[in-house]
Design a protein around this nucleic acid. Structure first.
Lengths: 122, 122
DNA sequence: GGTATATTTCGACAAATAACGAAATAGAGG
DNA sequence: CCTCTATTTCGTTATTTGTCGAAATATACC
């Protein structure tokens, strides 16, 4: 029950649902997710931590880059199906459509340049 | 998205998940749910209100008795399927097994007597 | 009408959670 | 080693949410 509740609680925040949906299209770097969400880096990091604890996402590090993706192996068989149903429900909502557009731009930008824009000192 | 988030938030509390699972076996009166949950009547009422707002439960009044049941018509097609998957995941967990036992006792008790026991002045 | 009763709403409080900036950590490059 | 940089953790604050008891509401009965 604890594990199921961890998942349900992880899904109870709109920003985290948006993160999951963004990862549906494939692995993304934290900086890309930060750019998409327009939240403080620490906030995005915290949200991703909750998703990781609930085993909804996996992460890998490549140098200074931290990549996140939807889990390949969910904690329970039903989780993938619940996520599919959820994504189906929200894929044509305004917020998600907006995210899709922004994500396309974010992904077309060079990551070094993106980070300079996000974290640069100027 | 608002509606989907209402549902996800409604599911993010363990007591509310337990209430939904209890209603799976059929319509129940608030007093029976109060007896099951061992929470203040006002708390159970508040939880049920959230579930009703999310269109996860329906209610009907019969005199002084207020009955709740799982919705016949969810807001979206996926909701029923998500609930089924959820129930499947938790049906053999300790808390739910305990609830099932307690619910059997609660339902076998005369409701007038139950209320006297719960709300009686003595 | 008055009294009793099942339930909901209200108000208050405690606990949990989302958000931020600062500090810490980890990795890269010279 | 030092400096730079991507990310996470920490500490703080604001907001939201769960819980309770009291008050209000709705229904039944005399």
């Amino acid at each position: 029950m604890r594990e199921v509740m961890d998942i349900l609680k992880a899904l109870a925040d709109e920003n985290r649902v948006r993160l999951l949906f963004a990862l549906r299209s494939g692995e993304l770097c934290v900086c890309q997710l930060i750019a998409l969400m327009n939240l403080a880096p620490s906030t995005v990091s915290k949200h991703l931590s909750i998703l990781r604890s609930a085993r909804l996402v996996d992460s890998r590090k490549d140098g200074r880059w931290m990549y996140y993706s939807l889990s390949k192996k969910f904690r329970s068989a039903s989780t993938g199906r619940v996520l599919d149903l959820l994504f189906k429900e929200i894929e044509n909502t305004d917020q998600i459509l907006d995210d899709k557009k922004n994500l396309k731009n974010v992904c077309s930008e060079d990551m070094e340049k993106l980070c300079r824009r996000l974290f640069g000192k100027s």
